[in-house]
Structures are given as C-alpha cells and as structure tokens.
Design a protein around this nucleic acid. Structure first.
Lengths: 243, 243
DNA sequence: GGAATAGTGTCTTTTAGACATTATCAA
DNA sequence: TTGATAATGTCTAAAAGACACTATTCC
C-alpha cells in the first residue's frame, strides 16, 4: 500500500517515532582504526559509551544533521578537505531505545587524525577508541545497538577502501604513499607489499598525484608527497588479501 | 550531542516526522531491467506513479515493513527462494513530501520475473516499467523524490552484481548460464562474451552449482541447469565492462 | 659505513579478453 | 542438412604477487 493510500485512508497519519542521526567517526591513530565515542556523564546509562548523535531538527536535512553532530563532537566547524561523510544504514527495531521509539539514521565519517579540540559542546567526555579495544571490552560498553552500528560502519569503510580511493580521506591534504599504505593496513588489519602497493596506486589515474615536494623524515630516504586526485572509483579494485 | 543528552535536556523529545518505507522492486523482464510501480488512482497526484511503500507500523521492524509492502504489491505471501531484499538509503529532505515531514527508508528487492498476481491489496494499478522507459518519459511521472530513489536502487543493483552472486536472485530456483548472463546484460546494458562469462562463473566456488539436469529449449543444444551456491562474495569481482 | 625508509626492476602466476572450434538439439 | 544455441579450447594481454635490488637520508 502506498503512503498516500494509507494517508488518505487515515490508517497511520502523523508520526510513528522520532528520527535521530548517529555518526561513526573513523580515523587511523597510531596505525590502528579508531572511532570517536562519547561517554555518558549522567544517568541513565552513566559510564557507558555511545556514538555521537542526536535528533534531526525540524527543517534540517539528514546530511546536515550528521554534519552538525560531527562538528559538535570534533569541534570542527567544517569537514577538513578530503574528509568523507556518507549515510550508512537506518536502524529502527521497535525497542532499540527503551525510552521511546527512535529511528536512527547512521552515518560513517572518514577523517584524518586531527588533534582533539579542547572540549566539544557537551560536558560529556569524548575520545577515540581503537576498534580492537572495543571488541575486547565488555559487550555492554556501548549503549543500545551502537555496537552493531559500529560494526556495520567499520565493514563499510573496509569495503569502500577496496573499490574507491577513499583511503585518502584518512590522510591530510598531502601525504606519502607509506602513510596511504598504513591506512589500508590499519583498516584491514593486514600488511601489504610496499612495492606492489605503490605500483597499484600510481597506475590508477586520479588516485594520488605527485606534488613534487618531499618531507623530512626521522630516518631513511625522504618520501615524496602526493595529493588526492579526482578519481571516484578504482578499476580494477584494490584487492583485500583473502587469507 | 547524544540523543540521551538531548532527551534529558528536553531539546527535542517526541517525534519530528513520520517514517515510511518505499521498495524498489527490480526484475528482468524480456531481457530488460524493470521496476514495479503503482499508479495513484485518486487525487492528489492522480495518474502519477510511485514506488510501493507505506508507513512503518507501531512495533514493526523496518525489514518487516519492507517485506509487507513487497508482499502487498506483488501478492507474494513470502519471498521466493533466493530473492533478495536489502535496505538502500533513507531520504529525509524536509519538504520531500509537501503534506508533512516524512522520512522514507528505501529498500531494494531483486526478484525473478514472476507472473503478476490478479490485483494486489490496493485498488490502484500496479505494473512493471522498464528503467529505459521511465528515463525517457516525463520527469514528473514519479511522485516526490521517487525518481532519485529509483536511480539509487538501480545503481545499487548494478554495483552489487559486480562483487556478489546476487544476479541469481533474479533467476528462478534453477537456471541456465545463459539466463544468468542475460541478467548481467540486462542490468548493465552491455553484452558479455558467453564463453568468458561461463568460465568466470564456474571458476567461482559457490556461485552456480550444476544440478545435472538439462532443459528442453526451442532450438539448439539443451542447456545445463544450475542452482545457487552458498557464496556471498565474488573474489575477484565480475568486472563491468568499462566502455 | 650501518641502519632505516623510499623507490625501481623483473620474473612468475592469475585472471580476463578475443575468438575459433566442437557438441547437441529441432525442423 | 541447416540453423540455432551450448560448451570447450587456446592464444594473448593485463594485472597481481613475490622479491631482489638500488637510492637517499641520518647517525
């Protein structure tokens, strides 16, 4: 039955729940895939952690709401250049929030490892957790179904690195190929052959563009710097080792 | 800000819109990718077409609501074996429905080309349209943002055929490799080399399993019959011709 | 020079594209 | 036999994996 048919029959008119957004903000810190979580400072659920999120405001688009939540928690007034935010999935199991029916439209954000701002808009604590640490901790660390949302977000990021150049969203505006490779290695939890990785990236038009500059490094030959190209798909894909 | 923080501050409590599901039901008819649309029989929007959909009921999960809508429009009491239904994306632009704020959680369904049942639960007409015909018709054929939802659904289907064995969801329980190839050809709008396609499918474990039986065909050598295997990913992917 | 990291070259293996050839049916 | 479709075989090209080797820096 169509929405309109229902509405004209008066079966369900008006609202059947509240709509929120939750954001899985991922970054690579110290070579490990990590997510930004906020701690509940007040009951209920005091001491447990949650994905940043909140209700969609009247007249606010979903993407806007997600951007706003990301900005509030990271302190970034806007997305850094090259960063990426995309819709993930909507979660609406009737009792996922025990207080009322809440539909949560989840987003995934890929960001470079920026220094945390001094306090977001909330009093509650916020910090990055490695995905590993969360998996090894008490299953009730996260509120509601946020563990499932996080798992879906991580899988989305892992999959998208295969067939898009989005790994660069984890990097600063200019980056070395070793940094880019460590994004893949940290996200997939594998190690990749540096020479073959280099050949693959450089043979894909629009993935990484040489800037001509180099960086100073602590030891070894100074690496070249690259910037994001305009490719939107890798063809053929970067293969995730199957082992 | 977290949902809980907002709720405890009373910033937004209760609802901010209604939540509906809309389903992009795709099939291959006469070799062409096609979608099931329902016609509005009553004003407003009389004579225009829409994706099957409706509001999510209290205590109904999103997947359930999508299955219910699919069943109501196709007359299928349950999904045929091997058919596929997955969440696509949520659309929530404030004025996408002029009557009230409606968040629509869209789904994509891939089904074999089953005969249409004699009338769904609605009085409104329902029929399959080819994607081509919709693209060539008046842009106002579809209500609201349903053209955009349809485009996203078609792109999802096209992409998923590349890296999953979901093409089999368009087939009956047993199928020939030519039928399977025509699914790819119809979905992608290309023609594929039959010999190379065959080699690719048969070299992917769990894609298509020979049943040992053959079909009678109007002309030519009778083809072997296959059934779906248990693979969930193609590795490496079936490449979509880049031309 | 030695340690460390960046970058190049090359051989092998896997997979895809092109396409000729054979197989099996109906009329 | 002819026409049609299914199935096989083979050569070539593209891409990935493995890995040895050279380059450039700091100490």
């Amino acid at each position: 039955m169509t929405e309109e048919a229902q509405a004209s029959r008066g079966i369900v008119v008006g609202s059947n729940g509240a709509v929120a957004v939750d954001v899985v903000i991922l970054t690579i810190r110290n070579g490990r895939l990590s997510v930004l979580l906020v701690e509940r400072g007040l009951p209920p659920y005091k001491g447990r952690w949650a994905l940043p999120g909140g209700f969609v405001l009247p007249n606010e688009d979903l993407d806007e709401a997600a951007l706003r939540e990301l900005a509030e928690e990271t302190g970034l007034s806007q997305l850094p250049p090259g960063a990426h935010l995309e819709q993930l999935k909507t979660y609406g199991t009737p009792d996922r929030d025990p207080r009322m029916r809440v539909f949560s439209v989840a987003y995934v954000g890929l960001l470079p490892d920026l220094p945390m701002p001094v306090g977001g808009s909330d009093a509650a604590a916020a910090r990055y957790w490695t995905i590993e640490d969360i998996k090894e901790s008490d299953p009730s660390l996260l509120v509601f179904d946020h563990a499932a949302i996080l798992a879906d977000g991580v899988e989305r990021a892992r999959a998208k690195l295969e067939y898009t150049p989005l790994a660069t969203a984890f990097c600063e505006e200019s980056f070395t190929l070793s940094e880019l490779r460590r994004v893949y290695e940290g996200t997939w939890g594998v190690s990749l052959n540096a020479a073959n990785f280099r050949r693959k990236v450089l043979s894909t038009p629009g993935f990484a563009i040489p800037t001509g500059r180099t960086t100073v490094s602590a030891a070894g030959r100074p690496p070249q710097l690259y910037r994001r190209g305009d490719a939107s798909l890798l063809h053929p894909a970067m293969l995730r080792p199957s082992s």
